[in-house]
């Protein structure tokens, strides 16, 4: 999973950012015009890609993406927040595994080589030790499937939201236990909040980073009543340090914008602004 030196990082944005009421084609047109290279597809969060979307329809999505001059950067999902791999109910866990398998299948159909998985969810009800073991079991079960598919599973760091694998060393140990080149980390530089520093996560995980989610974060400003996420460069992330760390570890894969805070007006403008900000990040002129 070593990253090739010298190539330029590419820009992508999630299709769940496409304004409500817009068609997939309209969204693709906007993504392309805004200057992105690819699009991230969210299984289960958009009408055009659901668990029951047939293979033929998925292939048709790929055709539309390519016709728009884009490629699919990766397949993500938020379905595991409601159907966690760490659930106590074996039936829910089986369904959660099926979601990942479907992600892997759609990734193959869409011609991309990475998926995002929310690995586990610690709650008051389900304690950490149980979650750890179940997630480990799930990844050990999924690793051969991912290997066969040639698609990497990136477990996303959701430090505060899923209260699991909160530190980079802990995440590293987890991946060591899984011990598969097809299971890595989908690193979200905004999710680290005030539990650490994105640039340190990048350095520690380097070659295991499958994809990078970009957003900015307002640290130490609470997270229960106001969103702490914001657009690039107006939060507290140290972007020069993040850029330097990406260079240091030789990351040249996809940068995927995940804007949690949405423009209330002129929603399409957020695509242009985000794309321009990502260009600045890639250029290193910060």
């Amino acid at each position: 999973m070593l990253h090739r030196q010298g190539a330029t990082m590419k820009k992508s944005i999630g299709d769940n950012m496409i304004p409500k009421g817009w068609s997939f084609e309209q969204g693709l047109d906007l993504v392309k015009k805004a200057g992105f290279d690819g699009i991230e597809l969210w299984l289960g969060e958009v009408p055009w890609l659901q668990m029951n979307t047939a293979d033929a329809a998925v292939t048709e999505l790929r055709r539309k993406v390519e016709n728009a001059g884009l490629v699919v950067s990766n397949v993500s999902t938020g379905l595991h927040w409601e159907t966690p791999l760490s659930a106590r109910d074996p039936g829910v866990r089986a369904q959660a595994i099926r979601i990942v398998e479907r992600q892997l299948e759609t990734a193959q159909l869409l011609g991309c080589d990475a998926v995002l998985v929310v690995a586990g969810l610690v709650t008051q009800e389900i304690p950490y030790n149980e979650v750890y073991q179940r997630c480990l079991d799930a990844m050990l079960q999924l690793a051969p499937v991912a290997t066969k598919a040639g698609v990497k599973i990136g477990c996303e760091n959701n430090n505060s939201e899923h209260r699991f694998l909160i530190t980079p060393r802990e995440f590293w140990s987890f991946l060591n236990e899984v011990n598969s080149p097809f299971i890595g980390i989908h690193l979200d530089v905004g999710n680290i909040h005030d539990t650490g520093f994105a640039e340190q996560w990048i350095e520690i995980h380097g070659p295991r980073i499958t994809r990078v989610h970009l957003k900015d974060v307002l640290k130490k400003r609470g997270r229960c009543c106001d969103t702490v996420y914001t657009n690039l460069f107006i939060g507290d992330n140290n972007w020069p340090a993040i850029r330097a760390a990406l260079s240091k570890v030789g990351y040249n894969g996809w940068l995927i914008a995940e804007m949690e805070a949405r423009y209330h007006y002129a929603k399409d403008q957020q695509f242009y602004d985000t794309s321009a900000a990502m260009d600045r990040l890639i250029s290193g002129k910060l």
Binding site: E45, G78, W81, E82, P84, L121, T123, Q124, H162, E260
Partner: peptide, 8 residues
């Protein structure tokens, strides 16, 4: 709902 919450 103790499973957690919908994404973000």
């Amino acid at each position: 709902s103790a499973y957690g919450a919908p994404r973000k």
